[in-house]
């Protein structure tokens, strides 16, 4: 899995892969932490390998990664640490793998969460993407398996999708190393704050729920000023999510507030 860095492209500044240095498991002194989230079998591990130069075993079956894998790379002037989370269909239930993914996105405070989705099964994959966007507002959508989408004669309006979701969307085919340079650029822009995401938030259909949420969010924002995902926390509290209840009880939630906003 070698990035094609030969020919005229490599010397062109637009070809960002020339600036990519794969560090394998060496993640010391990372400037930014990147989380890779996504449905099972969307190629997260393949993206992970393309970025780190590691060769984590990839397999064509859902649920291959059940533990976190970590690696590192240097891109431009920054060191990145990247964490491959278990693939899950949602972040709402309580299986061990979903909790690992959820807790990392929430408590691990990644600088960027890259949501890897299967372009040929966009609707189903967006369910998870929307849930991730409830938790974090620093995300990049990696529209992977574009080759399969093309094979299925699907055309995806990438710009419109980015507008709808409020985050950068990068079409890739990681197995062929297609789009990885653009993905790196998008990751850098979000990590450095050059691109400010305005993530899509789920609109609730139930009026009762909306009112309850508004009330709780107001409370949360008083207790934890600067909390960026108060709506999601409120939702989890309403659902009685034990881990989040604990985070409120112990005040751990306060630690999630961005320092410059506190």
């Amino acid at each position: 899995m070698n990035i094609k860095d030969s020919g005229a492209c490599a010397t062109c500044p637009a070809h960002n892969v020339a600036n990519l240095k794969k560090l394998g498991v060496n993640m010391e002194s990372a400037d930014f932490v990147i989380a890779l989230a996504g449905n099972p079998n969307t190629g997260k591990s393949t993206v992970f390998n393309a970025l780190t130069g590691l060769r984590q075993h990839t397999g064509n079956w859902p649920g291959k990664t059940v533990i976190r894998a970590e690696g590192g790379f240097v891109y431009g002037d920054h060191h990145y640490k990247i964490v491959d989370l278990p693939g899950t269909y949602s972040l709402l239930s309580t299986s061990a793998d979903e909790e690992i993914a959820r807790n990392f996105i929430l408590f691990g405070k990644p600088d960027v969460t890259v949501i890897v989705v299967d372009a040929s099964r966009l609707e189903r994959n967006l369910n998870l993407a929307l849930q991730v966007l409830e938790i974090t507002d620093r995300a990049v959508l990696c529209l992977n398996l574009m080759d399969e989408a093309r094979r299925n004669r699907l055309d995806i309006d990438v710009r419109l999708l980015a507008k709808e979701l409020g985050i950068p969307v990068v079409p890739t085919a990681a197995r062929q190393n297609e789009g990885i340079p653009d993905l790196l650029a998008a990751i850098r822009q979000v990590a450095t704050g050059e691109f400010v995401c305005r993530p899509h938030r789920i609109e609730s259909t139930s009026k009762n729920l909306r009112l309850a949420l508004d009330q709780l969010v107001a409370r949360l924002e008083v207790a934890f000023p600067g909390l960026t995902n108060s709506r999601w926390v409120a939702l989890r509290l309403l659902e009685g999510d034990a881990r989040i209840v604990e985070a409120v009880q112990t005040g751990e939630l306060a630690g999630l507030v961005e320092p410059d906003q506190a």
Binding site: E123, A129, L130, R153, D155
Partner: peptide, 17 residues
């Protein structure tokens, strides 16, 4: 709500050629 939103977004952006 999640499913509705996901369906709405994907309907808008995906077309079959």
């Amino acid at each position: 709500s999640i499913y509705q939103d996901a369906a709405r977004v994907s309907d808008r952006v995906v077309t079959r050629v």
